[in-house]
Design a protein around this nucleic acid. Structure first.
Lengths: 158, 158
DNA sequence: CGCTTATAATAAGCGCGCATACTATCTGAG
DNA sequence: CTCAGATAGTATGCGCGCTTATTATAAGCG
């Protein structure tokens, strides 16, 4: 070793938490894709459909509210919800009180599909994190700390 | 509570490791995007450029080899490398021994940019995981276990 | 009341991460 | 040597995640 080609990065990317996070997230999404394929849903479609199913009973959902609940950006939410509407899993009608907004409701087909898909998703999720065993709880705690700690930073930079 | 709208999913998605993983990965990519913006690089471009810089001194890189080293799929690798070539950060010449393959080399501009960008990336990375403090090591270990444990499963399903 | 500011949704467009399919070439078994 | 199967790279196309910009409307302030 005369002169390493890059500063730091001591022994390749294998130990960088960010690099690993990226790889794991990709692997997880492949898993989810496979698990959701029988239902012809993508992961984002599932998240929005499931969350809408969950909250539609307790409040009148708008796209913006749903985006906030799921942590999906409003642009993507708009696009994905239109796909869900085209598949007749949800309905988007003009909001009774705010003509700018759309009121989101879930059709019976949507509810039924969500109920079936959520089982497959949670199964795939459990299988993916199974290698951690009981440490999974610890991972969840770390994840929550990361979200907490970075939410603030992101809000600052706006 | 008369009848929950969905089976399981006991108290919303906030505790699902997969859901958290997805949110965190998105947040991390936003951070990386911001950190790399001054260099006009995307995350994938950086990873491929940095890895090429790292390994080009020790072996004759092909796209397939680079894809394998980075864990990026070959199709994306092809596309991203062409972007890097257009930016004159790498070169793709016909491989001397295998006419199917391209030999990848990094230009001086590419090396210089990689050297600068890697600092910004590692800084952003450190800031992102800072909330975990010394537990970061534990997270890395969990990540490695997850990759290990799921690599096998994915290979099986092919 | 009028006016500024914030908000709901969308159009257009970019790059990644795939899946699928195709061409050209290498490699190994017989 | 031949030929089947693996491999390197790419075209095409889809959906997400995001940026920027636009339209329409709501909400707050003087």
């Amino acid at each position: 070793m005369t002169k390493p080609p890059l500063p730091t990065r001591l022994s390749g990317p294998a130990e960088s938490p960010g690099f690993l996070l990226w790889k794991i997230s990709n692997a997880w999404q492949r898993r989810q894709r496979a698990a959701l394929q029988p239902y012809e849903l993508t992961h984002s479609q599932f998240v929005l459909l499931a969350t809408a199913t969950w909250f539609a009973t307790s409040e009148t959902l708008t796209q913006a509210r749903l985006a906030q609940l799921c942590g999906v950006d409003p642009m993507t939410t708009s696009q994905v919800l239109r796909a869900l509407e085209a598949a007749q899993l949800i309905q988007r009608v003009d909001h009774p009180e705010d003509p700018r907004a759309k009121a989101i409701s879930v059709t019976k087909a949507g509810r039924d599909l969500a109920r079936k898909a959520v089982v497959a998703v949670e199964e795939a999720d459990a299988a993916f994190f199974a290698p951690l065993g009981s440490d999974t709880k610890r991972l969840v705690a770390m994840f929550q700390a990361l979200i907490e700690g970075n939410e603030r930073t992101e809000a600052d930079s706006k």
